[in-house]
Design a protein around this nucleic acid. Sequence first.
DNA 1: CAGCGTATCGAATGAGCATTCGAAGTTCGA
DNA 2: TCGAACTTCGAATGCTCATTCGATACGCTG
Lengths: 200, 200
Amino acid sequence: MATRPTRPALRERYDRRRAEAIEAAARTFARRGYDQTSMQQLAEDLGVAAGSLYHYFGGKEHLLIAICDELMDPLLARAQALEGDGLPPAEHLRALVRLWVAHVVEHRNHMLVFQQERHVIESGAQWKGVRTDRKAFERLVEDLLARVEDAGHARYDDRRLALSALLGMVNHTAQWYRPSGRLDPSAIADGYVDLLLRPA
Amino acid sequence: MATRPTRPALRERYDRRRAEAIEAAARTFARRGYDQTSMQQLAEDLGVAAGSLYHYFGGKEHLLIAICDELMDPLLARAQALEGDGLPPAEHLRALVRLWVAHVVEHRNHMLVFQQERHVIESGAQWKGVRTDRKAFERLVEDLLARVEDAGHARYDDRRLALSALLGMVNHTAQWYRPSGRLDPSAIADGYVDLLLRPA
DNA sequence: CAGCGTATCGAATGAGCATTCGAAGTTCGA
DNA sequence: TCGAACTTCGAATGCTCATTCGATACGCTG
């Protein structure tokens, strides 16, 4: 069962193999669904025996948790880092949405899994961290929208509705984005921001 | 196996029981997930034996198909009916989004299942009808957005991006809407439309 | 190169599940 | 009321799957 090597020389390989497994799992879960994917299939994708996965993960659900953590942790961290840059509200919003869309696009398999398995994540103590991160991120966006409004860059009948709309459009991007598509992540983000920013 | 009674007197009961099963399945699939829900549990929810469900449905997947059909068929039908009303573009859009949000809210369990099982629906011949309906609906919205733009009610850098944004925000509504919430479906719809309509 | 921490294997285990089906019960229509 | 159509039952079937575990192989480190 999941034991990180004590010997430093072995950690790099351990961490790399573990990350590869998460990446492959995200890809396969996104395509076939979490429940429809057996540990056997996952192991085949990686070219190892099924039992070997249990050296890196306590069980199948740990893979799911790892996928969600890989998705939310860096997103929240980057969004929080942006807070310190002291940008004016409208520019801050644009920068945040760009960063966010880029993250969604970069991790679209993670996103698809996250959305598909919403019902699992909503309940269960092992998911508390993921839920907390998501709430913190949404809170951060909401506060920024308030500042955008205060600065006169927009006027919403209902700010929380504007927040939900933004969450919906950005997260939905994972469902249709293709790397070979017409628009790059920045253009997509700007298109969204243009819908949200208009002088009062 | 699924045989609709020939005797008219029995059809009403058959149709009702079948519809109840679909409704209950949508509720439970939305909460626990399709794969995590056993036919046994579904049967218990309905107060019947597991085997009895097979009198109404050929198999578990038929329940899923029925849920998606119940979701898409009436939505597409209502949206198409609206086309005949000859409304000017901006009003037409508002009417369509109101109808659409109301439908999503009314069938939010169906929507959640539809979204969660996206990967199943994307492939497989038995899902062609559902896929066709969704495409037809999206096409209809896209054409309407074009008319809105032509009429000078909005100007999008990229119309398909505006379409994706609208799809994202409306469909996302199923994830947060609560009947006891602050906003009613019309107010939600109007909030979305306000983001999309602005003079060029 | 010896030995321990590490990594992988792969067969075995046991649980859960969708589906089947023959029997028993129920309801309608004549 | 009788027979046929319809409905429900629930135990049996056979499969898939997550997980375990003892054995084996590998590779640092001293």
